Computed example of a mutant assay.
Amino acid sequence: MDTIPARKGKKRRTVKNPEVRLARSDELAEVCRLAWRCYGFTQEEFLYDLQSLTEKIENGEFKSVIGIDPENGAIFGHAGFKYHDPSVKVPELGLVFVDPAYRSPRVGPMMTQLLFDMARSEDDKGIFDCSVTTHFFSQKGLQELMGSRPCCLMLGIAASGMQAKELATSKQEKGSVVNHYYAIDRTQKTVFIPPRHQEMVADIYRWMEVPREFGVPDMEPPTGASSVSLFSLPDELNAAFIIVHSIGADTVKEIDDGLQRYRADRMDAVYLFLPSCGKAAAYLIEQCERLRFFFAGVMPHVHDGHDRVLMQYVDIPLNMDAIRVYGDMSRQLKAYVMKEQGRVQELR
């Protein structure tokens, strides 16, 4: 829940009781202008293109909530849901910003609450977010106000030098994000996790109040067809995703080929999403550790409707002391991720 400070020397307008609702089609052009006022052209491209923004809303890929000053009708706040796969119904909370000329402590939580209420009413499975570790108070708000829980720590994924328009801030090192998850669907399921990680994974699921049992894994090499997708993130992130849809005989090789391709492209980091619902998942996790991927966390429902174990390969130095996380749960997760990074680097 980012709030951008006003430019120096200008008094900010205070809105104590904002109106919050979904944006109408005739208001989307103002949403595009508001994004530019807050961030310049550093956010996702569709947010500045009226046609693209309209199409995503009409296709069910995006929900746009606005905060309005009731005295003058000005749109000064925004929050959004991105549905990466509308059929799965696990939106990402993001694109939360407030006009730098305004001050309204309530508008961020109110916009977020409206989106959460809509997700529950529409039977979404859950809500996730990507909170940069420089925004300590957004992490606190998500955990304390919304009940979201930390589930992943993705190192090196935040863009360097990303800053609000016209702010006198210096270029930052590559940053990291804490992913939170708010579970709506709490159906019991079985996941297959190597014994080494089961205690940490059990804690994460317990934080989220998502019931999961650990099945007995099959540690033999899998057979059958493999399905793996490679996905490069926007250029400013200089990172990529490898998404495993189904585990088969060639999965480890396909992951390794993808990793080497991205290393040749000098990507800062590669993030691996592994399905945890099949008996071969634990075998695959251990093989990927031999490729120097290390544990990042877990997230329910996010791809194909199934849970994922997230792993990461980080190819740049990071200042781990600069990663600020809120609360005991996030600190426990951070300590575990750091420990696993060191352990995997020592594997032969």
Rank of each mutant, 00 (worst) to 15 (best):
N59C: 03
G60M: 01
I57K: 12
P91H: 01
L93P: 12
E27C: 05
Y83V: 03
S52Q: 14
V20S: 08
E71K: 09
G73A: 00
K63Q: 12
L34I: 04
A79C: 14
C32L: 02
E27Y: 04
K63M: 13
K63R: 14
N59S: 13
Y48Q: 08
E19G: 11
E61C: 01
W36Y: 15
E92I: 09
T42Y: 06
A74F: 04
S52P: 11
L22Y: 09
A35Y: 06
F46G: 02
V31F: 07
D85E: 13
F41M: 11
D26V: 13
F76P: 00
T42P: 10
P86E: 01
K63N: 13
I66N: 11
R21E: 03
I57V: 15
S25V: 14
E45I: 12
V90G: 03
N72V: 14
R24W: 11
I68D: 00
D85C: 12
Q51R: 09
Q51D: 15
E61H: 01
A29G: 14
I66K: 08
Y39C: 02
H78N: 15
R37A: 03
L22T: 13
I57R: 12
R21D: 02
V20N: 07
C32P: 08
G77W: 00
V65M: 08
E92V: 09
K89S: 08
D49T: 12
L93Q: 13
P91D: 01
H84K: 11
D26K: 12
E92M: 11
A29C: 05
E30K: 10
P70R: 03
R37E: 07
V65E: 07
V65C: 11
D69I: 02
F81I: 04
G60P: 02
L93G: 11
H84Y: 09
C32F: 02
A29D: 15
R37T: 08
L53A: 11
A23Y: 04
F76N: 00
V31K: 01
T54W: 03
D26S: 13
D26M: 09
Q43P: 05
T42L: 07
Q43E: 13
G73C: 00
C32S: 15
E71Y: 05
L53S: 11
G40N: 07
V88D: 07
F62T: 15
Q51E: 15
A35W: 05
K56Y: 02
E45F: 06
N59V: 00
I66L: 12
E19W: 07
H78E: 14
I68Q: 02
A29F: 05
W36C: 08
F41D: 15
L34R: 05
V31Q: 00
Y83F: 15
E45R: 09
